[in-house]
Design a protein around this nucleic acid. Structure first.
Lengths: 113, 113
DNA sequence: TCCTGATATCGACGGCTGTCGAAGTCGTTC
DNA sequence: GAACGACTTCGACAGCCGTCGATATCAGGA
């Protein structure tokens, strides 16, 4: 699945009507956020000193099998919220802060509507 | 389903680890945002002069049946993103801007991690 | 080269969710 | 109060999604 471009340039929700195509892409991102395990993964990665976390550290934080965590990581990668890099046997994940900031900006409501 | 309190007091995703309970509640909100139709509904309501929209205006913007739109409106209400009020025969929906702002703040990344 | 450990992919299964038509509720109007 | 219009609720069905065990890939070490 191709990485999302939708976050590159999106005016706030209220500024102009969301066309169906853009709504569909945006929905993919929010859908990725719409799972408790993925939110916790994001929180773990985001809060980790150095900004990157080994998959094994994430897996250890949950009562889920490794394939399941791997699946969630892929979902978060696919929508551009995480990147990963292999170094030796280990794979490290890190946030894409721009994606979160853009989402944040998108939800921000101007004072006057 | 009880209205969500989760947005009342949530530190940013990165400040402290999301506990499972809070992650589950938050996920409900993002799940509500994770549908293109619901995003467009939000956009319509948010962008509407006066801040409120009659259900009939929303229904008219989609190629979906009225029960389906009603279902999506309920989902958005249940997570506290919309409120509604009946006046005469019509029902008007309006944004809960605090909910969006809090979500926005939650996704905001501090400059230094 | 084989083995082992770390991660990803595959295939399957059960539960959730978006959609619809039908029926119900609530106001208004005649 | 009967009939209509606006909206919601209900029940059903198809497709999606989170989870798992099994299997594959890939890197490092003996």
């Amino acid at each position: 699945m191709e990485p999302l471009r939708i976050l590159d340039c999106s005016p706030p929700l209220v500024r102009e009507q969301l066309d169906p195509g853009r709504a569909a892409e945006l929905a993919r991102v929010f859908k990725a956020l719409g799972d408790p395990v993925r939110l916790r993964i994001l929180s773990i990665v985001a809060g980790h000193a150095g900004g990157e976390v080994c998959v094994c550290d994430i897996t250890g934080a949950f009562d889920l099998t490794q394939p399941t965590i791997s699946h969630h990581l892929k979902v978060l990668r696919d929508v551009g919220l995480l990147t990963h890099e292999r170094r030796g046997s280990w794979v490290y994940y890190r946030l894409v802060p721009e994606s979160l900031s853009r989402l944040s900006a998108l939800l921000d409501i101007p004072a006057t509507v």
